[in-house]
């Protein structure tokens, strides 16, 4: 097409420009990833120039803004782990039960109604959940257990659990619905009940999808900020006891950001080191999830 019409050539050039533009937009997502890694690493390196990595990983106190500064990230990790475990203890059984019920038992009409409502649960702003944990759930728990402090990880974790139920249930349900009907029919033909089919045929076949749901839920819980910041108090506390108040990695970042931060202060650098730790933890979850998906993938 060497001697093509000038209009055709003009059109081809336009097409190429558009394609390059679209490619640039697609690459922007990769650029965001690199920017995140670059910014976190750069500020964290400044941090670790002042605080030895060994102290960061082994110190048992976290008092970065005090005169006697300690930087033991374990203190914050313990808060993150505790709230996440409480949340998962609520969300996994609830989410999986709901997913099995919707996918294997509920009538199509009920499913059409329930799914959007569950979606709404996932759409409520997290700060509203925080208010709910502090004003409603904590006083309720205090009736059962009077010694419970006004800020505690239990109520934050419970509310976080309810919050991530929709994530776990919708991803699990998609995975279970993707299991071919023949497998179920095979089980029914052998005389299995719907429950038995769900437990022994559908769940094993959908396991890689369920693993994905679990990792998604966990990384949501690990990164969740506002519920914890509002309801769990913000004092760093090295404990795995959910009845106590504690700060998590993310709520610490919020707490520091609420004050005025000079660019070169240690507090400024500290939140980036904390953020890097948080990113690494969610990365570990994602890698485990990826590995589980690969290991248990079933092809039909």
């Amino acid at each position: 097409m060497k001697n093509s019409h000038p209009r055709a050539r003009k059109r081809r050039i336009k097409e190429q420009f558009i394609e390059i533009g679209l490619l640039t937009a697609a690459c922007s997502s990769v650029a965001i990833t690199f920017a995140i890694i670059f910014v976190l690493l750069k500020e964290s390196l400044n941090f670790f120039a002042e605080v030895p990595l060994f102290d960061f990983l082994t110190d048992t106190q976290w008092t970065p803004l005090f005169d006697d500064a300690h930087f033991g990230i374990l203190t914050l990790i313990s808060g993150t782990v505790t709230t996440t475990l409480v949340a998962l203890a609520v969300a996994v059984p609830l989410g999986l039960t709901i997913a099995i019920y919707i996918s294997e038992f509920a009538s199509p009409r009920l499913r059409e109604i329930i799914k959007p409502i569950l979606e709404l649960l996932g759409a409520v702003p997290t700060v509203v959940f925080g208010y709910f944990a502090l004003i409603v759930v904590t006083p309720l728990l205090q009736k059962i257990y009077p010694d419970l402090p006004g800020f505690n990880m239990l109520s934050a974790g419970l509310v976080m659990g309810i919050m991530i139920v929709p994530y776990i249930s919708s991803v699990s349900e998609d995975a279970m619905r993707a299991v071919p009907m023949q497998l179920r029919e095979g089980a029914y033909a052998m005389g299995a009940t719907r429950l038995r089919t769900a437990l022994t045929v559908v769940i094993p076949a959908a396991f890689s999808g369920l693993a994905a749901a679990l990792t998604l839920g966990s990384s949501r819980a690990v990164g969740e900020t506002m519920v914890v910041a509002v309801a769990a108090g913000m004092q760093p506390n090295l404990t795995l006891n959910p009845l106590q108040p504690a700060a998590t990695i993310s709520s610490f970042i919020v707490q520091v950001s609420l004050g005025d931060l000079p660019h070169d202060s240690i507090g400024y650098k500290t939140i980036f080191a904390a953020g890097l730790t948080l990113l690494l933890i969610t990365l570990v979850f994602n890698v485990i999830g990826y590995w589980l998906r690969q290991k248990f993938r079933e092809e039909y």
Partner: peptide, 10 residues
């Protein structure tokens, strides 16, 4: 899957 607060730091 990246926590929203990390976007804040970015």
């Amino acid at each position: 899957g990246i926590p929203s607060i990390v976007y804040g730091l970015l």
